[in-house]
Write a protein that binds this DNA or RNA. Structure first.
Lengths: 199, 199
DNA sequence: TTGCGATAGTTATAGCCTATAACACTCTAG
DNA sequence: CTAGAGTGTTATAGGCTATAACTATCGCAA
């Protein structure tokens, strides 16, 4: 694949790549990750499918890029939310709220990260790092609310607990499992957040 | 498709159908739902792919059967667990434990029910009924631990809370998200169960 | 300014899959 | 013992990913 990182050629290349990403996200939103089709994207862009292999090594490769992009976007969102205040409790609330907004506005994007994985597939190492970056703001905020011994470990456990509880709500909400069930996801989410903040 | 419900023909038919199901589950376990291939199943059974269309209208049709089979199996598992004791608290523990065993022993089967859905796809009505059957034993056990006004609603809310918390752990565990993270899923699960029983 | 090499696109093709159609065999029920 | 239902086959259409071989174009350097 091409080397130059600047110049008109590189600029055009990046334009095409992001346009592909945009179409890909649209497809994922309406047909899920398994519905992602290079051929369909190419047609929407007025090209033929093989042309896209100049930009992405494979369909899986594109999907991996999208997963990493989702991770990065969530990490930035979470970090920005934490930066909006200095008070630890407010930070936890802000991060949790931002997480929910992020998940609800694009459920398939959330599930691309935290949903059903393909058994064989292993995410690149960068994904693990980004997952930790998403985790970190919550943990440091929760740590700041603690005093005494083993603060590190206790705040980690608390963060895991918060994370799994919020994810429990978000994942069922994103999957539509509350749709037939007299449940208010936003309220439930708030209660789960409170349950950890009170403990 | 054929009518008779008994006789040698019907018996053979059922044998083939269940053999297809078995191969399908094996494929799902090792390649996920998206890896399910009628042609591969046919080859494993020494037949050609079109032959399977005598038994299943389509690949999606087979998948729907598998989803419903998973629902039914989980419903029976949960009901059996609840029936093992009369004490409500023990019932909640038994059902939760059975749920975790069921989920961990076949993560892809659990995720087939509670994991990422395909956006367009709508499960048959029977799925919703079975989901309620899975929910019911927990709710009645939790209701039996309550007294006072609005017991119905309070036990429902409590069951939703328990369900989302357990699912939060199970879904992240099934997806392998704890693998790189010093977390003991079984312990976490037990703590989450306890958190609801104590509330 | 021009021409050469890198880049971007094409068509053709292989291979995998689902699904249908048309055909042949076999078994069972009357 | 035979007619028809049921089961399986091959052939085929059409979708997809992906590679190969070819062509056109663009931009940089001489």
């Amino acid at each position: 694949m091409p080397q130059p990182t600047d110049g008109p050629r590189a600029r055009y290349r990046e334009q095409v790549r992001t346009e592909v990403h945009d179409h890909a996200w649209a497809q994922i939103a309406e047909a899920g990750a398994s519905g992602l089709s290079l051929k369909a994207i190419a047609q929407q862009m007025g090209m033929t499918a093989p042309a896209l292999y100049r930009y992405f090594a494979s369909r899986d490769d594109l999907l991996t890029e999208l997963v990493l992009a989702a991770y990065r976007d969530l990490a930035e969102t979470v970090e920005a939310a934490a930066a909006r205040t200095g008070d630890p409790t407010r930070q936890v609330r802000a991060v949790s709220g931002a997480l929910r907004v992020w998940a609800v506005q694009a459920p398939q994007r959330y599930l691309l990260i935290y949903g059903t994985p393909v058994p064989g597939y292993t995410a690149p190492p960068e994904a693990t790092e980004l997952a930790q970056r998403i985790f970190a703001p919550l943990q440091s905020a929760l740590a700041a609310r603690l005093t005494g011994a083993r603060r590190e470990r206790r705040s980690f456990d608390l963060t895991v607990r918060l994370w799994t509880r919020l994810h429990g709500v978000l994942s069922l909400e994103a999957a539509g499992h509350f749709d037939t069930m007299d449940v208010e996801p936003a309220t439930l989410f708030a209660h789960e957040l409170a349950s950890v903040l009170e403990s």
